[in-house]
Design a protein around this nucleic acid. Structure first.
Length: 683
DNA sequence: CTAGGGTTAG
């Protein structure tokens, strides 16, 4: 009586023949119903049974556990007149894999320990509880279970070994896991324990160890062994190895399943290989397992990472209904190509939102410099979903504060982090320093920065950039010196910061030295932003000839950033002819950017070329492009004071301009002194 | 009738 069909046939036959149905057969039938997910039928039979025994009760309780109806299982458990170890274990298993019932599991296990009933703790209960410890990362609890197992000789089976390895691995104790594995009775371990140990090595970052184990006993290989190894490589930056093993797996006669595909797709997305992704896509179609959500999500992720949103949308549409994993991938994809409208639409369409999807869209808005949207989204989601933000979300909010120069909200978030006792990792610390620097409070930034013992490149970059932003040239250069002294490697961003200092202070020679040192001393290839810095440096120093010569030697195609910077150089050097010469090229690349037309118009206006100016503005109108007006703002108390160019609408405008003129005088005085010091120090 | 290993997103 293996299948439900056979069971029912036999049962019907028994009734027809006038035989009384016995408890054993009915129990078996309940079990078969449960296996097929037919819990209502199982319960009906259970109700109709004149006699029940402990097996009957266990079968129906297990049925409700498998149907994830814990309330009903609990009711039956309480009602059952006869409970043995299996009854307890079934209930335990239900509690353990249902979110929110963990403490019930612990309580039931405690009851099991008391001796007032027929049930006893056995190996089943212990492996179940080890699972709970793994799930919660409760090392102390797991350790106690381990001790109990040793004391009661319940630590010797393969089940015990694999569960213990898994528990120690999940709790981050690779060494303990290894001790269990190594201490297997008579040194004999089974396939599952070997796979568990491989998984533990991978989680502990010991890929070599895992690989050695994998190849050590090929007779103990199964799908899981291959998939464990493939995912291990894929998740630890060994994409090529993962792909190699994926191929080898099939060559060795092991059929790919959804796990194999999901892992190899992770490797494709890290490599941003659209081609490989398409090949895997084709394979999955051929294997007929494309409908598996792990595989479809993986494909959406690969296409999104490669910026191929058409294909990502295509695969996503086949998912039928929303999927948060695919949605996150796509939001990241849209953000990368700057399409925040699509990202927002997708986000809004989601019925279920979590912290991960929120972080994804926040990062997108930050990339597109839309800080208001960050706060709006955060407020909406926090209010309606009562979620607790994590450090990644808070870092996103700090980023938005930095973008909007919002020091007060920034301080509030900082205080919230401290008050709630969040772990301050490198990421959140750097974001905090950056926020204070960008909000104009370089002193706070400096104070936090100085207290950090282990400073990395990112943090140095932020602080050097902060000093650059505030015009603290000595501090910036000195910090660069300190960085080198401490053996922290500068990167491309470091040099953007250094070149920014130079260009804002007209330090042409120093800029040239830094620029050359990039390739000659640090083997860092300069990119668009570095080239733009140099052009700007020459432009601001009124050395347009040098800028032109520099442009002539560029190893890359002139893009909008470079041409736009050159245009500014033309403007400050009042060279309308040169500006006119790049007009066609720049508008061809960025004809949709209204700011470019305004840029040209202002140059023509400066030299009173009114015809040229009229022509460019007409062109702008015809193309129906817009430029948002540049604006400055400051928060004072509850009020935001905004200013646009030559805007005199503020009620205190005369006082404001008076203070500005005083500040300019002071700045000029400071600059003269600094320049003299600099000249003397260079002598 | 109850228990062990591998898969997706910030």
């Amino acid at each position: 009586m293996k299948s439900l069909r056979d069971g029912l046939k036999y049962f019907a036959y028994a009734i027809k023949s006038g035989l009384t149905t016995n408890v054993f057969n009915s129990n078996q039938l309940i079990h078969l119903y449960v296996k097929r997910g037919l819990i209502r039928e199982a319960h009906k039979l259970f109700d109709e049974m004149p006699n029940r025994n402990v097996f009957t009760w266990n079968a129906i309780i297990n049925g409700y556990v498998k149907a994830r109806d814990l309330m009903q299982a609990q009711l039956l458990f309480t009602a059952s007149p006869c409970k043995d170890s299996v009854t307890y274990n079934s209930m335990l298993s239900g509690y353990i894999d249902t979110q929110g019932y963990e403490s019930d599991a612990v309580e039931l296990f405690r009851q099991l320990q008391s001796q007032n009933h027929d049930a006893r703790i056995d190996e089943f209960s212990l492996t179940l509880m080890l699972n709970l410890a793994s799930k919660l990362g409760a090392l102390i609890y797991g350790n106690q279970l381990h001790c109990y197992m040793v004391k009661t000789a319940n630590n010797l089976s393969h089940f015990a070994v694999s569960s213990l390895i898994h528990m120690y691995s999940k709790c981050g104790c690779l060494l303990e896991a290894w001790k269990v594995f190594d201490g297997c009775p008579n040194g004999i371990y089974d396939l599952v324990s070997k796979n568990a140990m491989m998984g533990a090595c991978i989680k502990g970052g010991e890929l070599e160890m895992a690989s050695e184990l994998f190849w050590s006993r090929p007779e103990l290989h199964d799908h899981v062994s291959w998939n464990t190894m493939i995912s291990g490589y894929a998740q630890n930056g060994y994409e090529e190895e993962a792909i190699k093993l994926f191929k080898l797996m099939a060559d060795e006669g092991y059929k790919w399943n959804e796990h194999s595909f999901a892992s190899v797709l992770t490797a494709c997305s890290s490599l941003k290989s659209r081609e490989l992704g398409k090949q895997i896509h084709a394979r999955a179609l051929r294997e007929g397992i494309i409908t598996n959500p792990f595989i479809s999500n993986g494909l959406v992720n690969v296409y999104s990472k490669c910026g191929d949103m058409k294909y990502a949308e295509l695969v996503n549409a086949t998912l039928g209904g929303e999927n948060i994993f695919a949605a996150v991938s796509m939001i990241v994809g849209y953000s990368a190509v700057g399409n925040m409208l699509k990202a927002q639409q997708l986000f809004d369409s989601l019925a279920e939102k979590n912290l991960i999807v929120l972080t994804a869209i926040i990062s997108g808005f930050l990339k597109s410099r839309q800080c208001e949207n960050v706060f709006r989204l955060f407020r909406d989601l926090i209010q309606t979903n009562a979620v607790v933000p994590d450090t990644l979300i808070l870092a996103g909010l700090l980023g938005a504060c930095a973008l909007g120069a919002l020091i007060d909200p920034g301080k509030q978030i900082h205080a919230y982090l401290l008050r709630m006792g969040y772990m301050m990792d490198e990421k959140i610390i750097s974001t905090k320093v950056d926020m204070y620097a960008k909000c104009g409070n370089i002193n706070y930034a400096q104070r936090i920065f100085q207290k950090i013992s282990q400073k990395d490149t990112v943090l140095y970059n932020i602080m050097i950039g902060g000093y650059a932003h505030h015009g603290f040239i000595y501090e910036a250069f000195q910090l660069f010196h300190e960085m080198k002294g401490k053996g922290v490697q500068p990167d491309a961003i470091t040099f953007i910061a250094l070149l920014s200092v130079c260009r804002h202070r007209g330090l042409v020679e120093m800029g040239e030295t830094y620029f050359l040192s990039m390739t000659e001393e640090y083997e860092i290839q300069p990119e668009t932003d570095h080239f733009a810095c140099m052009i700007d440096l020459y432009g601001r120093a009124n050395q347009l000839d040098k800028a032109i010569a520099f442009m002539g030697k560029l190893p890359v195609e002139e893009d909008a950033v470079i041409l736009g910077t050159f245009l500014n150089a033309c403007k400050s050097n009042k060279n309308v002819e040169l500006a006119g010469a790049v007009e066609e090229k720049l508008l061809q690349i960025e004809g949709r950017n209204g700011a470019r037309y305004v840029q040209f118009a202002s140059i023509y206006a400066l030299e009173e070329k009114w015809d040229e100016m009229g022509r460019i503005m007409k062109q702008m109108r015809e193309k129906e492009v817009k430029k948002t007006t540049g604006c400055s703002w400051i928060h004072i108390g509850e009020r935001v004071h905004t200013f646009t160019s030559s805007d005199r609408s503020h009620s205190e405008i005369d006082a404001i301009y008076f203070v500005i003129s005083c500040l300019i005088q002071e700045l000029d005085a400071i600059r003269l002194t600094e320049e003299r010091i600099l000249e003397e120090s260079q002598c």
